[in-house]
């Protein structure tokens, strides 16, 4: 410290004599050393004041008062800077923890696309930010049924991620892929309604596909309607349902409907991030998706998903505005 004080006085005295740029530079380097030695801002001012007293003897009383004032103010300034730095460190720690949480979340929610003999399934799910608010859950009992849930949690970040885990474990505990879709929604609704706050809810489309009879049974809780393409009629149908979002009221009954999938038919299940074209008012995204699906129906389901994503992204200048999820189930040619 004594050494630093001496150096400071020397540099100050040189600068007062000739106002040289190089002295300023040396001064800046000295400050770096002082920071390393934990010299506080008020100590630097104190050293400065002592130096002036040594150079010029007694300073005018007013100047001494002014320095005392500055030293006091700088004590608080130093404290605030330290506080700010420690907040930055904490923020960084939280960011690292969030990254780890997001990784764990991704691992927990990972679900492989099942391979079945009679269907071809494709899926794409792209999060807008670190944590995905969309989730796709497959249940495959190779003997009889395929179950698929496509879900979108409203809300972002940690609360949405926790809610998503709840949906996943709810679906897991329902255990069998052969549960009725309306029953699945009713149970999940009770689970979510008890556990989340008033502004959080979940939209979910659940379908069960009978691998023997090819009957596709579906039910929807406030979810973007899926599209069904009937190949024989060359026509798309909206799988409309007015089921209430999950998590809003405690006891809600859901209806379910069914259709028979025939050769070359396909179903497109998506979240609202796919159809919500914010900057193109009047643009009918669902019509565009139908058009794209028709032009790429010769591709396999996964390639169709990828191509639809790429084409829609292009239309939005390569910028996502929401989590984006598409699942396509195609009925294979009969063996």
């Amino acid at each position: 410290m004594q050494q630093l004080k001496k150096l400071y006085k020397q540099i100050l005295s040189d600068y007062i004599c000739n106002q040289n740029e190089s002295d300023l530079y040396i001064g800046q380097n000295l400050i770096k050393q002082m920071i390393q030695k934990n010299v506080s801002p008020e100590d630097v001012i104190s050293i400065h004041k002592q130096a002036l007293e040594e150079f010029y003897g007694e300073l005018p009383e007013t100047v001494i008062h002014a320095y005392d004032f500055l030293i006091e103010v700088m004590v608080h300034y130093g404290l605030k800077v330290k506080e700010h730095q420690s907040l930055l460190v904490k923020q960084e720690e939280m960011r690292i923890e969030m990254d780890i949480a997001a990784q764990i979340q991704n691992q927990l929610l990972e679900n492989e696309v099942p391979k079945t003999k009679c269907t071809d399934i494709g899926m794409i799910s792209v999060p807008l930010r670190k944590m995905n608010g969309d989730y796709v859950h497959f249940k495959y009992d190779s003997a009889n049924y395929l179950g698929v849930a496509v879900t979108d949690v409203v809300g972002k970040g940690v609360p949405a991620a926790l809610c998503m885990s709840m949906v996943k474990y709810g679906l897991d505990t329902l255990e069998y892929a052969n549960s009725n879709p309306s029953y699945v929604l009713e149970v999940l609704n009770q689970l979510i309604e008890k556990s989340v706050d008033d502004s959080m809810f979940v939209s979910l489309f659940y379908a069960r596909y009978n691998l023997h009879s090819n009957i596709f049974t579906w039910s929807s809780a406030g979810h973007e309607p899926s599209l069904y393409y009937n190949a024989a009629e060359h026509t798309f149908y909206d799988l409309e349902a007015k089921g209430l979002l999950l998590g809003i009221l405690p006891e809600v009954k859901y209806s379910q409907q069914e259709l028979e999938l025939k050769e070359n038919d396909f179903i497109i299940i998506m979240t609202d991030g796919v159809t919500d074209f914010r900057k193109n008012e009047g643009f009918d995204a669902r019509e565009k998706i139908k058009e794209l699906a028709l032009s790429f129906q010769h591709l396999n389901a996964q390639e169709m998903c990828n191509t639809i994503y790429q084409e829609l992204l292009k239309l939005q200048d390569f910028k996502l505005y929401d989590d984006f999820t598409v699942v396509i189930i195609k009925k294979n040619k009969l063996f």
Binding site: S203, A221, H223, E224, K242, G243, L244, L245
Partner: peptide
Amino acid sequence: FEITGLSEL
């Protein structure tokens, strides 16, 4: 509001 079933509520 219709898709989400809220218009019924």
